[in-house]
Simulated scan of single mutants.
Amino acid sequence: MASLHALFGGTFDPIHYGHLKTVQALAQEVSLHQVTLLPNNVPPHRPQPEASAAQRVAMVRLAIADRPLFNLDTRELERQTPSYTVETLEQLRAERGTHQPLAFIIGQDSLLSLHKWHRWQQLMDLCHLLVCQRPGYARAMPTPALQEWLEQHQTADASALHQQPAGLIWLADTPLVPVSATDIRRRRHQGLSCEDLLPPAVIDYINHQGLYTK
């Protein structure tokens, strides 16, 4: 069986150490050799990113240039319609075959609201979920039924993630990295330094493009 391949979606407006360091710690925890970053195409009814799709992709490329764990997949940005995670996973599953172990990385905040996602109950047929801690979010699900669903799928055996293609949830013991893109944009708007929050090449690009200054 092929080794576990993980996917990590995000707006990446901009990509920062909260994304990179958390996923690198997760990779060590569950023996990931490759993580594909999937920049989101933001639906029209959601607040639009300050950076364009091309700028967000450029920042991701710069951030991962010296990090061989990561690669980039821009398929969600190439669609003209809103991109749903379940549809992207169906597409990837069709490409990789039924036996390839696939995992989707989310934060604890996303796990708590997963029941609001489009066709959320089909996710476990397509992938494992690797859940990273997020500062300030509860560990328990919002209802007893959802907590039971979590416990049915949860595993404490990392090797199981590599041995079956989908269906398990891993609650990661990743470090709490208190960095958010919202905070970075706010700091930039206020003229504050973000040197310690994101890679130098990304900061140089942001400065060169004049991003997050309004």
Rank of each mutant, 00 (worst) to 15 (best):
A53C: 01
Y84S: 02
V35A: 03
Q100N: 10
L72S: 04
L38E: 06
R56H: 08
L111D: 02
E50S: 12
P39F: 04
R67Q: 15
R67S: 12
K116R: 15
N40D: 14
L111Q: 06
S83Q: 05
H115C: 06
F104S: 02
I106R: 03
W120V: 00
V57F: 04
G97P: 13
Q91T: 13
H115Q: 11
A65F: 00
P68M: 07
F104A: 07
W117I: 00
R93D: 09
V57M: 01
P68D: 11
R56F: 14
D66M: 04
L92E: 08
Q48W: 08
L62Y: 11
V57K: 01
R79Y: 02
E90T: 12
R119W: 02
A51M: 01
L111G: 05
I64F: 08
S83R: 09
H115M: 01
L89S: 04
A53H: 11
L111M: 08
A94I: 12
A54F: 00
P39H: 05
R75V: 02
T36H: 12
T81H: 13
D66S: 10
F104N: 09
R67L: 07
G107I: 01
E76Q: 15
S52H: 08
T98D: 10
S83Y: 07
R46N: 14
A51Y: 03
N40K: 05
Q48Y: 04
V57S: 04
T85D: 08
F104K: 03
L102P: 02
Q34S: 10
P43N: 09
E90V: 12
Q80C: 13
M59K: 00
P68F: 06
L72Q: 02
F70N: 04
P101I: 05
N71W: 06
A103Q: 05
N41C: 11
A103L: 07
H118Y: 15
L92I: 15
I64K: 04
R75F: 02
T81D: 09
N41V: 07
